[in-house]
Design a binder for these strands. Structure first.
Lengths: 293, 293
DNA sequence: GTAATAGTGTCTTTCAGACAGTATGAC
DNA sequence: GTCATACTGTCTGAAAGACACTATTAC
């Protein structure tokens, strides 16, 4: 009997709270919501993703949903070795607002995405994980090519850090055998996830970071009314970077992607004006987003 | 018996000749090379794509290969209506050099990709297809929302034309019922393709255009030695835009993505210096590409 | 008053686009 | 010489980043 194919859908559900981007995992395991694609039931792959989220999170309401990538390598599920079916998974990215996220059901746990990718957060200096990295790279003395590549994707030489290359960085560490999934015992390079779920999350993070500049996806994660500082902190948390306040403010104002509500919000210092997303930009500008760079 | 899933791979093979980007179709039909994913044989989805290309093109050698998107909507293959399996297709983009393309086997036909998307080529003014478009948009009088959206994605109002939005434009025309696949008899909006293959090609064109600026993929399509004019014409043909010669030249020179060979090439006018790709840029710059914008 | 955050204005550097003009070949 | 293409230098305006500074609250 020939080996069979089993088509599944896996979803990276993302929200932001307390300046921390979070990924939804099923309770007890570092595992993404996932399940079989059922053609008789699921009219589209995207609807399958919505169904699975609803079933496995106690009815979480998802706004934005986008296909990421399809993973089909042999032995990505080790059960294949002992005769299991070939599992091909279509990965999806879902964004949920902070309010909806709080209403998620019992069986789920929100995890800081930087728990899995500590080297991706450069908001605080010095980045402990990033210096550990420099050590690993230096130790790859045997392979000049690999070392140079590592310097590039990790921005260790003069070349600038590219926040979107999350998957490349993860795969390089996998290659070097320094992450737990590649067999490294007691790895300090982030917590492992089940199967290849960390690859899927890496893909999601890269996609979010790449898209934020030319699509208004941050607003899927924010409450309807927010201050510019809150907007900035949210973008910073996703990008893993600190941004210059005044410039960020000007950039956002120029693109007219938000408008004042007229309201104010108390803070520790001067109260902040509140803003809301301006959907009209979608009809005005071809690629409205929030600049990071 | 529940409906079964059949996983396939479909490939958009692209080359450029005579300032014309071309898509490989199987002879006699406007159909992409495609076939079943065979888990016992194909270690990865990408290897399945390579196998299918080799089998269906008389051994065409493919360099660059990249996953595009996975298509799984119900009834994307009409045979489903009469009990056929649900066909889920993973789309791939392949780039082949002009020399390899000439060596492709008997059963294939290279087709100008603008035969399927005439409105995407804005190198010559006026763009016949583009003005026809303006008419369709104006005729969508019933739906203000749709009309505004059309103006944006087709760049008909002040907003600038975004060359990457190929799929959005095709889907809008589908929505409006103006393409043959949506049932329009005698449509002037490009030649139809089999099933949803035109959607897949649209995805490929958008990907190529988006990637050209920050990855050196044009060089996959060019011969090893070329003039700057040839490089410019190739980029222009892919982007569907005319570029300013002197600025293009400066841009390319600054990024150090090419180097002189020392040779010259005869043309109708002054002979041109020849260049080659400089692989070292990959180690120097984080995102080397050829600027279009 | 101080501390803390919100917000404004200006300067500088970088880079994309426009443009004017020169160079080198075929004929 | 003309025609055609290759190539160079310079100007300009938009945008990104750095920075100095002011504003408004709590305490």
């Amino acid at each position: 009997m020939p080996q069979t194919v089993r088509l599944e859908v896996e979803v990276v559900v993302v929200s932001v709270a307390d300046e921390t981007p979070r990924v939804l995992t099923v309770a007890g395991e570092a595992r993404l919501p996932s399940g079989d694609f059922v053609p008789a039931r699921d009219r589209t792959l995207e609807l399958a993703a919505r169904r699975l989220i609803a079933e496995q999170t106690g009815g979480l309401g998802v706004g934005y949903l986008e296909q990421l990538y399809t993973f089909g390598d042999r032995f990505r599920d080790p059960r294949e070795v002992s005769g299991g079916p070939r599992r091909v998974s279509v990965g999806y990215l879902a964004l949920v607002g902070v309010d909806a996220a709080a209403a998620a059901g019992e069986g789920v746990v929100w995890r800081d995405w930087y728990a899995f990718f500590p080297w991706e957060d450069a908001r605080a200096e010095p980045v402990a994980a990033r210096t550990a990295l420099a050590g690993v790279v230096a130790a790859t003395a045997s392979d000049e090519r690999l070392r140079r590549w590592a310097r590039i994707v990790f921005g260790l030489d003069g070349s600038s850090w590219n926040p979107e290359r999350v998957l490349e960085r993860y795969e390089l560490l996998y290659e070097l055998g320094t992450v737990a999934e590649a067999g490294a015992a007691g790895s300090t390079f982030g917590e492992p996830m089940v199967l290849d779920h960390r690859r899927i999350v890496a893909t999601a993070i890269g996609r979010v970071r790449g898209k934020i500049a030319y699509r208004p996806i941050v607003f899927e994660l924010l409450p309807p009314v927010f201050t510019l500082s809150e907007l900035q902190r949210t973008v910073e948390s996703l990008a893993g970077l600190r941004l210059h306040g005044p410039n960020f403010r000007r950039l956002v104002a120029e693109t007219r992607v938000v408008e004042e509500t007229g309201g104010r919000r108390r803070t520790l210092g001067r109260p902040a004006r509140t803003y809301r997303f301006r959907p009209e930009v979608l009809a005005e500008r071809p690629d409205p987003g929030i600049g990071i760079r």
